[in-house]
Design a protein around this nucleic acid. Sequence first.
RNA 1: GGUCUUGUGGUGUAGCGGUUAACAUGCCUGACUGUCACUCAGGAGAUCGCGGGUUCGAUUCCCGUCAAGACCGCCA
Length: 582
Amino acid sequence: MKRTHNNGELTIHNIGETVVLKGWVAKKRDLGGLVFIDLRDIKGITQLAFNPTSSLYEKTLEIKNEYVLEIKGKVIERSSKNKNIPTGEIEVEVEELIVLNTAKQPPIMIQDDTDALEETRLKYRYLDLRRPVLQNNFLVRHQTVKAVREFLNQEDFIDFETPILTKSTPEGARDYLVPSRVNLGTFYALPQSPQIFKQLLMISGFEKYYQIAKCFRDEDLRSDRQPEFTQIDIETSFLNQEEILDVSERMIKHVMKSVKGIDLTEKFPRITYQEAMDKYGSDKPDTRFEMYLENLSSIAAKTTFSVFLNTLEHGGIVKGIKVQNGANLYSRKGIDQLTDYVKKFKANGLAFLKMQDDVLSGSIIKFLEKEVQAELIETMGLVNNDLVLIVSDKENVVAQSLGNLRRYIAREQKMMDEEDYDFLWVIDWPMFEYKEDQGRYFSHHHPFTMVQEKHLDDLYHAPEKAIAYCYDLVVQGQELGGGSIRIHQEEIQNRVFDILGISKEEQQIKFGFLLDALKYGTPPHGGIAFGLDRLVMLLLHTENIRDVVAFPKTNSAQCLLTEAPSMVADDQLLELAIKTIK
RNA sequence: GGUCUUGUGGUGUAGCGGUUAACAUGCCUGACUGUCACUCAGGAGAUCGCGGGUUCGAUUCCCGUCAAGACCGCCA
């Protein structure tokens, strides 16, 4: 029989119609003679009714949850209605019933509020994905991709595919390697991103490229990180930073409108990297709440607290955050917990001061003269019941610990609204970061990032001061995307490789083709890439990337469903001339 | 590589140095004509992740190991 309707669409207006439905048994309720079956498909649930007089009654006895049914029947009005579901006013009086398939008892309950452990859910992911909540997640993911494509197609972007089997590149993350059978002893790498290919396409003259691109990085997983993930990858020729930010912003707004129905009319605010680090202690600040980092170094210098004084003497800094009403929210024990938290970020401790009844008290109060206290109260604008939390350490430790602490407290105190989309551009990133333990410069973004013209000289004299045409889109304390204007002149590219300590030979081996390409009339170009998984997570308000990836990997990068990765047959290895070390 | 949390019937949890290992749900049997997490009665179902140690005795305490999760390192 041909299906006439899905299980989510029949309403009071269909009464009297004869319909054919297909789907899974979500629930059977046998009242003894009178039997109800909730039939579920991707669109929803329809109640089937079997009268005691029905010749099909006997047949319903054998039906269990998750059986697959095909039915024909008449839509009738329910005598007792269920206002909780869209189809709750009608039911289908079944006249024909075909069991398309039976089902074993499922190991997890196919319900939105399943309490099965993730381990079980992942092993039986195909059943987990039958749950309407998860099905909705992937519908939203689909709508997001659809909206992105709509927008970019409209703007004349061209959808490309770039190789999955490609060349290993230095810098950045660890590569996934694939052995070549035809060229024994050599390896392809899976792309960390299609970076170089999209630049080559600009050199080819396509001008506007996009790809919903799978990317691979062999690094440890997190709740928002999978070894393979998807980027909305974009590259353009002749557009400057301003123009790229504009088209990106319009794309995100189009997605927000299409998927969530939210009109974002304001221009996304901008903040420089330096300002973000100073004020929020993070390059991806959550701007939904204040609790700014305040530099207290000059006040700390006037205290008699040796920890502060030592820190300052060794070139460190002292910063604090103000937690409004925090004096009530955090007892001594609560502050101990916060102290443990900042220790994860290498902070040695957490000093605190409480303002109560117009008097300051706290762990370090005896080191603060009255005038110093007054200056602190003035600087931080303290009023009664405020709590001040202070970290003194090297600049990056202070930023990291306080930056994370302010988010931790905000989360604990529920100071953030998940429907508050605080999109923010972080711009003016440094070109390089000097890593002391490795004694050399590393690209902040990647080695193809263009220096701002006014900082061109710095490339030759003070690389650490050079500022790039580089930008990240941040929302709710998450990096959603990032990109840069690329270098299109061979000379600058060579200089950047020099700064990174990549030798001439290595440059030729790794990037010779790109350096060659730059000689043949490369247009100014630049682009951006957005994390699709994270975008969908944002739209769904989930903290777990596994909720938006159909077949995700566990923390140890395994797929519990297929049991990948796995051993392979000896002759497969032999063919590749690969020997494993036990 | 490191820190922390968890592992008990199919599923999710409780529990305790000596128990008949508890509860919910699911499953099976029976009853039930308006349910929608149907209800009611009865029943089956667990070598307490694995290995070792302490102990008269370990599911419980200790060590190791495996697996899952969160985080740090790593990663844009």
